[in-house]
Amino acid sequence: MELTGKQKRFLRSEAHHMNPLVQIGKNGISETLLDQVDELLERRELIKVTLLQNTDEEAKEVAEIFETTLHCDVVQIIGRILVCFRPSSKEKYQTFSTKVRSI
C-alpha cells in the first residue's frame, strides 16, 4: 500500500505518543525479532522500534530490511527510532488502516 503525504502525517501524529514496543540490541536483526515485529504489526498496525546504543545496525538499513521482508511502510525515522505501519489482514485489528483509507 503506497501512502500519501497526508496519510503519513496522520500516522506520525498517532505514533507520537506511543512507546517503542521493539528494541534492537547487540544481537541485531534475527528471525525471532522479525517474527515478533510481524506479529505486532498484524495486531497493532502501527508500532515504534528503537535501536539501542549497543547495536551495530543503522536505522536506514533496518528500515530497508523491514520494508522488504515484512512488507510494511516505515513512516518515519527520527534518530534511532522507526515508526512502522502495515494494515492488518484481520478486520478486528484494523484500527488505523480504516482511518488511513478515509484520508
Rank of each mutant, 00 (worst) to 15 (best):
L82W: 07
F85S: 10
I77H: 08
A63G: 08
H17T: 00
N54R: 09
I78P: 00
E39M: 12
I47Q: 05
V83I: 05
L3N: 02
R101E: 15
H71L: 14
P87Y: 14
L34G: 01
I78A: 09
E2G: 12
L70E: 04
Q76H: 10
L52V: 01
T55F: 01
V83N: 06
V62W: 05
V100I: 09
E61T: 12
R101I: 11
I103M: 02
I47S: 02
S88L: 03
R80F: 08
L33Q: 02
R12P: 04
T68R: 13
E45I: 06
N27R: 10
C72Y: 07
N27G: 09
A63D: 06
T4E: 04
Q76N: 11
E2I: 14
T32W: 07
F66P: 06
E91A: 15
V100P: 09
L51H: 00
S89N: 15
L70M: 03
L3Y: 03
E64H: 08
L33H: 01
H17D: 00
M1I: 11
F66C: 03
R43K: 15
C84M: 15
E31Y: 11
P87T: 15
H17Q: 00
I103N: 02
L33V: 06
T50W: 05
R101N: 14
L34S: 03
T95Q: 14
N54E: 08
L11C: 05
D56T: 12
I77Q: 08
L41H: 02
E67G: 07
R43W: 11
L51R: 01
V74D: 07
E58R: 13
L70W: 02
Q36V: 01
L46V: 05
N19A: 10
H17L: 00
E2H: 15
E42W: 05
E57K: 11
R43N: 14
L34T: 08
E57N: 00
E61L: 04
A59R: 01
